[in-house]
């Protein structure tokens, strides 16, 4: 399966990564090499094989409904690049 430039751009968009226009072909070529390399998996016969979801077959353990964490806005905001009135501040969201 060959990945076209349009797809590479879409993947970059979904990943929120910018690829300069002059690099898009190089990135695309490398991307294609990798994708065709992993496609060796197609040789494996996986008929009637269940995908592996949990390696240890563990079942989920549940937590008691207790409030343990909170009242720590200072710690939550400690590393914030920008904060005002205890809010994280980011450039305006446009729909």
């Amino acid at each position: 399966m060959s990945v076209d430039t349009q797809t590479v751009k879409k993947i970059a968009f979904l990943s929120h990564l910018k690829i300069d226009d002059d690099k898009i072909d190089t990135v695309g070529a490398e991307f294609n090499k990798i994708i065709s390399w992993v496609e060796q998996l197609n040789e494996a016969n996986t008929d009637n094989v269940e995908p592996l979801v949990s390696v240890n077959d563990t079942k989920l353990t549940l937590r008691k409904d207790e409030v343990v964490e909170g009242n720590q806005a200072d710690k939550i905001l400690k590393n914030a690049p920008a904060a005002e009135y205890d809010y994280f501040v980011v450039p305006k969201v446009v729909e």
Binding site: E69, G70, A73, Y85, D86, Y87
Partner: peptide
Amino acid sequence: DTNQNVSF
């Protein structure tokens, strides 16, 4: 209050 009911 703002960001007080927040865990890591």
